[in-house]
Every structure is written in C-alpha cells, then in structure tokens.
Amino acid sequence: MTMSTLIAERHPSDPLFRADRLPHIWCPGCGIGPAMHAYAQAMVESGIPLARHVCVSGIGCTGRVPGYLNMDSYHTTHGRAIPFAMAIALVKPELEVTVYSGDGDLFAIGGNHFIHAARRNVDINVICINNFNYGMTGGQVGPTTPMGARATTAPFGNYEQPFNLPHLAAATGAVFVARWTSLHLRQLKQAMLRAMKKRGFTFIEVLAPCPVGFGRPNDIGDAMEEMTLYREGCVVDPAAPLDSLDIDLRVKDRPIVLGNFVDVERPVFDPLAMMRPTSEAENNTAVAGKTQEGQ
C-alpha cells in the first residue's frame, strides 16, 4: 500500500555529495543541480572506483560543483581548470580526470587552454555547463550569449556572434563531442559514461537554465519556462552538420540540435613517448585501468 508523501531527511544520492553543504547556493531552478546529479550517477555506473575519479573546476557558479561532490575535487583559479587537470592526467594516467566548469570560465578566460588541450588530445573529459551568460557576477555577456539576447552589459541586445561550442571542440580536435540539456538527463548520463570510457579529450556541452542571469532580462519567465523551451525546441540529430549547431533562443521555430556528434579516435597526448624505446612507444595506448574502445 502506498502512502501519500513520506518526509525524508536524507537522499539516496547523499553519499556522493557533501550533504552537510546542502541545500546548495544555486538559484531556484538552476540547471547545474540536475547535471551534477547525472555526473555523480555516471561516476558510480562507470565501474571506475570513486577514488580514481578527479573533478576539477575553475571559477563561476559551475565552478562550485567540486565543492559539493564527495570525492577528490579541485576548485582552481579562473580559466585554469584545464591546465590543472592536464597535469593530473599526465602525472597520474590511471586517474579519470573531469573538468566541470562553465562557458565563461572554459571559453572566455580559459579559451586558449581549451583549444590547445583539445589539439593535443589530452586524456581529460570536459563538461561545460552553458547558461549563456556570466551568472555568478550578475548576468554579463559571455562568449556564448546568443546574438540579440539582453544582458547586464548589453541592455539593448548583444551584438557579438557567439561560439558554437560543439563545432569549436570538434574543429580543435576533441575525440568525443556531445550536447545535451539539463532536461535530457538520461542521455546526458550516457554521454558522460561514454566520455569516461574513452581515452583522449572529450567534450560535453550541457545547456542549463539560468532563470536569474539569463532568463529574467530575456523575457523567459522562470526556469520552468526555459526547460519547456528545451522540451519543445530541441531536436536530437547526431548527424547534423557541426556548423549548423548555433543556438538562437530568439527565433521561435529554430530547433536546438542535441546529440553525440563526434566519436572518433586520435593518438592521445603522451609527451614521454619520444623518450621511450620504440616498442614501448607503440604500446603507449594501453594504460592501466582504461579500456580501449573498438578492440
């Protein structure tokens, strides 16, 4: 017999979080919470022990994610999450290193680090929460703010062309590129599992509602309304041309394309390969504890 509602004190996922820090600081309806839950569940389901997972972030609302995860996690300086994670991945190749940060941190302040880590194909996962603005500092224009969208620093509308993040990641050399939203959580979790399994530089963009920073100046009533936009306006098309993935929330009929767009193999960054005897260099793909796909 089911009762109406039972009041609980603890959540089954609480052991994955620093539950004494909850409720977190994010605004009501923020999309970072569900995406962090998907990441925590993906870590458990990945089969890699939690002690071998590392989460690194920069600064921003999303930069607070490592502070809420009950694991080895690092909150680094603004934009420098990728070089920090790169060092961990090179010194301890047995670890599963994930950078979890926002669009401003990864693509404005840390933009150069992103393109060069992707070019070198460093063995890290990058998860970018894209909320189209600098949320923590009060809703300024960022590198992903759509054309025409209003923000604190663009009261008459943004006149900058934004980044198309999956296209950028694929062009600079990422071996796995996906885009989901904080509504498509089962698909997002599967993409994270694929990224954790894959060697090399993987990139997942997560579109997340920012009801206070982005929604309010752009006449999106609340987080529920932005989530409804995702539910009605998203199309899953993994075969879509990468240059067609621009997002423009102003145009009503233009769909937001989601999917796992790129899944290829490239040699993984290994700066010591040249110093090893040839036979060993050929085997450098077999790193302990990691599975090589397609073999």
């Binding site: 509602t5 039972l6 009041i7 909850l22 605004c27 009501p28 509504l183 987080a223 529920m224």
Partner: peptide
C-alpha cells in the same frame, strides 16, 4: 513508487511537479 520528499531543501522550481 513511493514518493519521498526532503522539504527543507526544496526551492519550488516546480520541475518535478510539471515534468
């Protein structure tokens, strides 16, 4: 399923109710 709620954490975003 049996629904369990932790009331003091909720911020009334209505995602669960509407979805």
């Amino acid at each position: 399923g049996q629904v369990h709620v932790i009331p003091h954490r909720c911020k009334e975003c209505r995602f669960c109710v509407d979805f």
